[in-house]
Simulated assay, not measured.
Amino acid sequence: MTFPFWMLIAVLAVAAFSIRVLGLLAGESIKSSRHSWMLDDLPGLIVVSLVASSLAGQPVGTWLAAGVAFFIAYVTNHVIWTMCAGVAAYAGLVWFGF
């Protein structure tokens, strides 16, 4: 490899390391602030935003399967049962032409 490739690798490595260090520093400063209570709900909010953006523009069958998965998650609070029910509902709806 030539020198420009090694420089690119070095710059990307420093950038990746810097992003991680800055994230740790920012996280520590947020944890010690008065806004730390917001971090408790952050993982759930991230999951909801990912699911909502994935469902945007999907057909009705996908929304129905997501509804079934949501219901199972609400009733059982069990991740494996929720995934199995969602996949089974989606497969059934695809099988029947939704």
Rank of each mutant, 00 (worst) to 15 (best):
residue 32 S to R: 14
residue 63 W to V: 08
residue 29 S to T: 14
residue 36 S to M: 01
residue 50 L to G: 10
residue 56 A to T: 14
residue 33 S to Q: 09
residue 42 L to R: 10
residue 62 T to D: 01
residue 72 I to L: 05
residue 70 F to D: 00
residue 68 V to G: 07
residue 71 F to M: 13
residue 46 I to Q: 00
residue 42 L to C: 06
residue 52 A to T: 08
residue 30 I to T: 11
residue 25 L to G: 06
residue 51 V to I: 14
residue 68 V to L: 08
residue 28 E to T: 00
residue 27 G to R: 08
residue 23 G to M: 04
residue 53 S to E: 03
residue 64 L to D: 05
residue 32 S to D: 03
residue 38 M to K: 06
residue 41 D to V: 08
residue 47 V to G: 04
residue 46 I to H: 00
residue 41 D to I: 07
residue 51 V to P: 01
residue 54 S to R: 07
residue 31 K to P: 07
residue 37 W to T: 11
residue 66 A to I: 02
residue 63 W to D: 03
residue 30 I to E: 02
residue 24 L to E: 04
residue 34 R to H: 07
residue 26 A to T: 11
residue 72 I to F: 09
residue 34 R to T: 11
residue 77 N to T: 10
residue 41 D to T: 07
residue 52 A to P: 01
residue 46 I to K: 00
residue 27 G to M: 03
residue 66 A to E: 01
residue 35 H to W: 10
residue 30 I to F: 14
residue 35 H to N: 09
residue 50 L to T: 12
residue 65 A to V: 02
residue 66 A to P: 06
residue 49 S to P: 02
residue 61 G to V: 07
residue 73 A to M: 09
residue 27 G to C: 05
residue 74 Y to R: 15
residue 58 Q to F: 01
residue 55 L to R: 14
residue 72 I to Y: 05
residue 37 W to A: 14
residue 57 G to A: 11
residue 59 P to N: 11
residue 39 L to V: 10
residue 68 V to E: 03
residue 59 P to W: 08
residue 26 A to D: 02
residue 56 A to Q: 13
residue 47 V to R: 09
residue 36 S to H: 13
residue 39 L to N: 05
residue 65 A to Q: 05
residue 48 V to T: 13
residue 66 A to K: 04
residue 45 L to T: 10
residue 65 A to S: 09
residue 56 A to R: 15
residue 74 Y to C: 09
residue 60 V to E: 15
residue 50 L to Q: 10
residue 78 H to M: 03
residue 52 A to R: 02
residue 25 L to A: 11
residue 39 L to Q: 03
residue 58 Q to W: 00
residue 39 L to C: 04
residue 75 V to W: 06
residue 55 L to C: 12
residue 41 D to W: 05
residue 46 I to C: 02
residue 32 S to C: 00
residue 49 S to T: 13
residue 49 S to H: 04
residue 54 S to D: 00
residue 63 W to A: 10
residue 75 V to R: 12
residue 64 L to G: 10
residue 73 A to G: 12
residue 61 G to C: 07
residue 65 A to F: 04
residue 56 A to M: 12
residue 68 V to A: 14
residue 28 E to C: 00
residue 23 G to L: 04
residue 55 L to I: 13
residue 59 P to M: 01
residue 57 G to M: 09
residue 56 A to N: 12
residue 74 Y to L: 14
residue 23 G to D: 01
residue 77 N to G: 04
residue 68 V to Q: 04
